[in-house]
Amino acid sequence: MIRWLLLLMLAAGPALAVGDPADQLPNPAQEERARVIGRELRCMVCQNQSIEDSDADLARDLRRIVREQVAQGKPDEAVLTFVHERYGDFVLLKPPFKMATALLWGMPAIALLGGALLIRGMRRRQRVAPGPQELTQAERDRLAQLSGRPRE
């Protein structure tokens, strides 16, 4: 029984996540613009979805606001700024580059640089490591003495 319910829920999940078609803009070009903007905006309730993907109440309200402003002819930047001013950096799925986010944006470069330095260090150590060395004359004498062979 429970298994069937779970299967049903899995099947129903993606269908529910789609926004209400009644909220869509009649102009397809504007609707497409609104979707592009909406995909840049995080749903603050579910946090790992954009407002276009989320079925949360707040996401629906924000979708409506985005569409209203697009229909009013506001440029994309202005719509994003409207939401950003109210919800802060976290609402942008692509956070802006500034002091607080420098580490976040710089991490791939830092990781790459760290890896390159590590590899260089390992290579150098390999090169420096001495191979088998020739015996000195004194060592050869001692060896010969111990093994009882005549001297060279």
Binding site: M44, V45, L58, D61, L62, I65, R86, Y87, G88
Partner: peptide, 8 residues
Amino acid sequence: AIDWGLYG
């Protein structure tokens, strides 16, 4: 509420 940045 949205003008206040409310999310719940």
